[in-house]
Design a protein around this nucleic acid. Structure first.
Lengths: 210, 210
DNA sequence: CATTCGTTGAACTGACTGGTTCAGAAAACC
DNA sequence: GGTTTTCTGAACCAGTCAGTTCAACGAATG
């Protein structure tokens, strides 16, 4: 009781939240390379440079470890994806080549955010335990899939209204653009992101251009 | 040794292979609803209407059960997908509307084969244990993803050569069409397959039509 | 009828691991 | 330096489940 008065921080001077974060980071790393069932709490503790009881003093059990670690990562990925779409606020009077460039840039950023290592891992982990933790899978889906889709659809709607795209359902258009982006990665995981983005935008604009 | 002479069948008069198949079917069902770790061999035996030692008399261990069951299902899905593309051998002199119709039919069939319950389950199971059985994941990928892609690319190449599509890389075109098909299912799992297929082909032909 | 072979049910072993406990070490605080 | 608190390491408990063993059973077979 005395220590919190003196420092004002959580409990032990400095390092309460940092240590919790270290544990969550370790948990994510271990879950990523072992999967849920194979990961043992012992190893997570080691990864975080901490003893097993310490882990349990921060998170209730293995399940919480998983939920917190994966959920936080999903949020990060979602944030990055939404941010990638944000610059797509086209000034109405720009030429068509600028639209093409802006779209390509956004597509490329989106691909880096949604196809990167962390994003891939999050999707795999969520899918792997979808039966056991369906609510977590739903939350990940919300962050990683639906939020970026909604953000992109918003931008496309504005572009359509500005006459930069042929009249269309922006939700449908967003689905198609995202599919054109992420689909090729399934078939060629090693493909150059910039090239994939360029091709996707080309096809998209041929179909949805004015 | 004596019995095979008399009946000519595997071992016990009738039912050796049928029983093995029943066990594999049971295994697939149980793995599908529990996941690998949660599934216990006892339940698989029950699902197949058989005792636990009988299971082990047909397959070596739980891992084999998983590999055989998932592998066989992946092969079925792959076969169905390839068959869906097969009718796309367009007579060269047909009108463009016939191309559109044929493409839509193939797309719809492809969607039913690759987006159906079994296909989804196979993908989930393979992805879930990808770390533990990477070779199985690769095999599933081969059957469920790469084989249909190659078959479709073949058809698109012939169509391109016949002047029915604008000159393009058929591999890339196949990726894009498949992406347009399966992508929307990620965002709207309940969507009408026929509608999704129609929209995908519309977009595809606007971008790749002659 | 006697034999043979696969099936069955049940019990058993062995390994693994999540989660807890506890006494002692280390560090922060005054 | 003395006090308090957290962290550590190790042992421990309990539950689960893969895989095995075995005696009894039943159906074909001769």
């Amino acid at each position: 009781m005395g220590s919190e008065v003196s420092t004002g921080a959580g409990r032990t001077g400095r390092g309460r939240v940092e240590r919790r974060q270290a544990i969550l980071d370790g948990a994510f790393a271990v879950f990523a390379r072992r999967g849920y069932a194979q990961a043992c709490v012992q190893e997570i503790a080691g990864e975080a440079g901490v003893a097993k009881p310490t882990v349990y003093s921060h998170l209730a059990d293995k399940e919480s470890l998983y939920r917190e670690a994966v959920g936080a990562a999903a949020e990060r990925v979602g944030d990055r994806s939404v941010a990638a779409v944000e610059p797509l606020r086209a000034p109405a009077e720009a030429p068509d080549s600028a639209l093409h460039a802006a779209l390509t840039a956004a597509a490329h950023a989106l691909l880096l955010a949604g196809g990167g290592e962390e994003a891939r891992t999050v999707r795999r982990l969520a899918c792997a335990q979808a039966l056991q933790f369906p609510d977590l899978a739903a939350a990940v889906r919300e962050h990683v899939l639906l939020r970026p889709h909604a953000a992109l659809a918003d931008r496309l709607a504005r572009l359509t209204l500005a006459g930069r795209l042929r009249p269309c359902d922006p939700d449908r258009a967003a689905e198609h653009l995202l599919a054109l982006l992420t689909g090729p990665l399934e078939y060629r995981p090693q493909a150059d992101a910039r090239k994939v983005a360029g091709e996707a935008v080309d096809v998209f604009l041929r179909a949805y251009g004015p």
